[in-house]
Amino acid sequence: MPGARHCLLFDLDGVLIDSWDVARSAFVGACAEIGRDGEELVSGFRDRLGRPIEDIARQLDLPAGFGETFRTHARRLDHLAVPLDGVAELLAGLRSLGCLIGVVTGKDRARSLSVLAGCGLIAHVDALVAGDEGPGKPAPDPLLLCLDRLGAPLCHGFVGDTATDMEAARQARVPAILALWGGARPVACDLLLSRPRDVADLIGMAQTS
């Protein structure tokens, strides 16, 4: 659809930025603060990434207020997050094709903006929906809100790295694109891509079809 407004949605952690060490350390530290062994729970934490931290805490039987304890630890470490290789070039390339960029994350808005700025990616992002703005993934609500903010009638898909992301995409009725370049585990998806540049190739082909 040459000339039509079009967009692509991305998850943040594990797709645009490398932040697993930050998240893991923050989770283990927050658990220690409340007298729980985070090492015993970290696998369950990783399996639920993409959801708001309050949802993860409830599912792991962690006490009310754990989310804020986790965020306190994470804010001290967020400066260690870095963009994944090839992501800055990918986003710049998509923008050159006229593709609007939306980011949908389970991370709270303040931390999301801070990390995007610290990684030098914020200038490429046209809309952001964070985990503290309403129902989180895997509900379709945050993806649909992001599409509304972008105002683009054509969405090429949602690029994520977890089963939570893929379920959110399916519920929002957009293609579920699994990004493997951040170390994701294979899960059911509509399309699996190994490198950031594969995304740009996909959009380029869509533009010429």
Rank of each mutant, 00 (worst) to 15 (best):
L49K: 10
G35M: 11
G65V: 05
T164W: 01
K107V: 13
D108V: 03
R111W: 13
L12R: 03
V82R: 15
M205V: 02
L178A: 06
L150P: 11
L94V: 05
F66P: 04
L90R: 06
S43D: 12
P196N: 05
D21A: 08
H79M: 12
A206H: 11
L41N: 07
T105N: 10
D61L: 07
G120A: 13
L121R: 08
G106N: 04
V82K: 11
L145V: 11
A169H: 06
A4H: 03
I177Q: 09
P140Y: 02
L62S: 06
D108C: 01
R170P: 04
P175G: 02
L16H: 14
I177W: 13
D108T: 11
F158N: 04
A163K: 00
M1F: 00
V15F: 02
G93V: 00
G204T: 15
A184C: 14
L193R: 02
C31L: 10
P196T: 08
A172V: 03
P175C: 15
G29D: 15
S194R: 13
G29R: 06
L77V: 03
R173I: 06
A206E: 03
A168C: 02
R24E: 15
G3K: 07
L202K: 01
G44N: 07
G131W: 00
T164E: 02
Q59Y: 07
L180P: 15
L116K: 02
L128I: 12
D13K: 07
E54G: 02
S209I: 09
D37S: 14
L154Q: 14
M166V: 09
M166N: 13
M1Q: 05
P83Y: 00
L80T: 09
Q207E: 12
G182I: 11
S114C: 00
F158S: 07
L77Y: 05
D201V: 06
V28T: 10
S96A: 15
G151M: 01
T105M: 07
A176M: 06
L178W: 03
D47N: 08
G65A: 15
L41Y: 00
L97N: 04
V42W: 07
Q59N: 12
I101N: 04
G157N: 05
P153Y: 12
R173Q: 15
S112G: 09
L128F: 08
E54N: 04
G160F: 08
A117W: 06
G157D: 02
R48G: 10
C146F: 04
A168D: 03
R197L: 07
H6G: 00
I17W: 01
L128A: 06
F27I: 08
D13T: 00
R109E: 15
F158P: 04
A110L: 13
D21I: 10
F10T: 09
F66W: 14
A57E: 10
A127K: 12
R51P: 11
L16N: 10
